[in-house]
Computed example of a mutant assay.
Amino acid sequence: MLAALNLVDTGARTNEDIFTGASQWSPQGRLFGGQVLAQSVVAATRTVQVERPIHSMHGYFLRPGALEVPITFAVDRIHDGRSFSTRRTQAYQQGLPILSMIASFQTVDEGLEHQKAMPEGVPDPETLADERELLSTIDHPAARFWASGRPFEMRHVEGPIYLPTGGERTASQGVWLRARGRMPDDPALHRAALAYASDYTILEPILRRHGVAWATPGLKAASLDHAMWWHRPARVDEWLLYVQESPTAGGGRGLSHGRIYSRDGALVASVAQEGMTRVPGAS
């Protein structure tokens, strides 16, 4: 992940700043959306003064990304005000946009403060099964990659849905996650990495509600758009709880909301995503 987020600055062109980044292999045969989101965040952040961290982003996935083609990121410096800066990042492969994102940055300020409390009674991550052990027993390229090549460790509170489980059909779940290995101390890098991780399981409450596993033959699921708000600083190499729920699904699409908490209960980020969810035989 760190290699993918280490973008190359190729200089300004007219009113844009241009960066390039590597594509990471993914077992789905297309780029992982969280990777492109995180790289777009890094590109935009490079054009903003360091004392203005990103606080929100809204992105649309326009085309599947190719694994073997590098990505170009063009950043438009839309606005710089006294407290806020706005940037638009377009990610391209072979001249075609694959993601369009707009992001806002704010100088750190003080004001009213409250948050929705972290759910009570959630098991500690150490008490939950290490999913690498489960995935390593599945003879499939995707499972093998998720077991050893994924840059984040994840532990589902209600149990994973990689395979059919027959568990409760509920449109909500909790997932503990953290980066594998120690990350640099750069807060901007941790915010970008959190965007990377936020795309992993956000559509699962939709599938869980209908008893659909990732291994369901013919299942097609893909992120359509993604919004994220950073509320408070957090380290992604420490355990974070990703609380997710889906309020609705229909028309081959589903909507999910997520809240990310640090282990001490601070709400560090909120997420919303709509995704394509097509299941053979679903009415």
Rank of each mutant, 00 (worst) to 15 (best):
I71C: 14
E245N: 12
D185N: 12
V8T: 15
Q24Y: 03
A222Q: 04
S256F: 05
V50E: 15
N6A: 15
D17Y: 12
F61P: 00
S100D: 13
A213I: 05
A234K: 04
A221M: 07
M228L: 11
A266I: 14
A179K: 12
V8R: 15
L224C: 03
S262E: 11
E133G: 01
S270N: 03
L203F: 08
E68D: 15
V122R: 04
A215K: 05
G111N: 11
F32R: 11
R180N: 11
V8F: 08
A221P: 02
A221R: 02
G11P: 15
R169G: 07
D264G: 03
R191T: 06
R253L: 00
R209P: 00
A74F: 07
M57Y: 12
G254K: 10
L5F: 08
M1Y: 06
G258H: 02
T248F: 08
V236G: 07
T248D: 09
A43C: 10
N6M: 09
T20V: 14
V108Y: 01
I78R: 13
Y92P: 02
G65C: 09
R278S: 04
T216F: 03
R88C: 09
G59W: 05
G265M: 13
D225W: 00
G81W: 04
F61S: 03
P187V: 06
Q244Y: 04
L62Q: 07
R87P: 02
V48Y: 00
V108L: 11
